[in-house]
Computed example of a mutant assay.
Amino acid sequence: MPKILNVEHLRKTYTSGSKQLTVLDDINFSIEAGETFAIVGPSGSGKTTLLGLCAGLDYPDTGVVELSGANLGNLNEDERARLRNEKVGFIFQNFQLLPTLTALENVVVPLELQGAKNPAKIGRELMGKVGLGDRLQHYPSQLSGGEQQRVALARAFSNSPSILFADEPTGNLDQDTGDRVVQLLFELNQEAGTTLVIVSHDLELAQKCNRLLRLRGGKVVSNEVLIES
């Protein structure tokens, strides 16, 4: 299978006062198209920083990130944004829905910006798949946390991404609600054939993936195959 994400010798440091803090140190791994891949580690191990670098939201100090065949280091901001719009989906811990838009509009607006045909039809279908066909005109403030995350799921899959980055997707949800969101995430992902990259402190969630990368202190401590893809 072709590699959809390739990371080589990635290093990221931040300056805090007079000190240099190394958040990631010589990170190497690759992900095949269609894989489900989890990144786990204790708080402060560099998980979210790594996700941002892989998605082209930030720049490493040294190292290479190749996403969907493109070397992110060779792209300017506009080219990175275009690549994300066309190839990448995101799910965040805090949902990041636009409060002034209805649930349906939160899913449809990104499609409209991309010039998709029949965006409202696609949006309604996705909202139906996540079990919110009766909540289309509700605003985020009128939805529970689980419902908001399901809207975010529908939005994430709306552009048929090649790769989906999920940063602590159940972090703000109770156990039962989180389990339902995870079930939907994997169902939608399998149906779409998307590559899924999950950052989580939840080992039970991570172990549902094909592979598991463990970080500690900014370094890779293991890269395990859990389920043959």
Rank of each mutant, 00 (worst) to 15 (best):
K87S: 05
T194P: 10
L213I: 14
A192C: 14
V23A: 15
E112H: 06
I27E: 00
S222W: 11
G217W: 15
T170P: 00
V220G: 10
V130K: 00
M127H: 07
E204N: 13
L67W: 11
T15W: 12
L101Y: 12
L5A: 05
K129I: 01
N94K: 11
M1Q: 04
N74M: 03
L67M: 13
P42Y: 15
F37S: 03
V109D: 06
P42H: 06
V88M: 14
L72E: 13
A38C: 15
S45F: 04
L153C: 01
K219L: 05
L98C: 08
F95W: 15
D58E: 08
Q137C: 03
Q96K: 01
V64H: 12
L111F: 07
V65M: 09
G69N: 13
E224K: 11
G44N: 01
N94R: 13
K47A: 13
E228T: 04
P2C: 06
G193P: 04
V130N: 00
L136F: 07
N6I: 09
A154W: 09
L51V: 07
G46L: 11
V182T: 02
P161Q: 14
C209M: 13
G44V: 05
T62I: 12
T100H: 12
C209N: 12
Q190A: 15
T13P: 11
L75I: 08
D167E: 10
L97S: 00
S30F: 02
I122E: 14
R84A: 12
V7M: 05
F90H: 09
R135V: 04
R124H: 07
S16E: 03
L51H: 05
L203G: 09
R214H: 15
Q137R: 12
I198K: 02
L10Q: 06
R84V: 15
G128C: 13
V40N: 01
G17M: 10
K87P: 07
D25A: 10
L173I: 03
N74F: 01
T48A: 15
V40H: 01
R216L: 08
P110A: 11
D58Y: 12
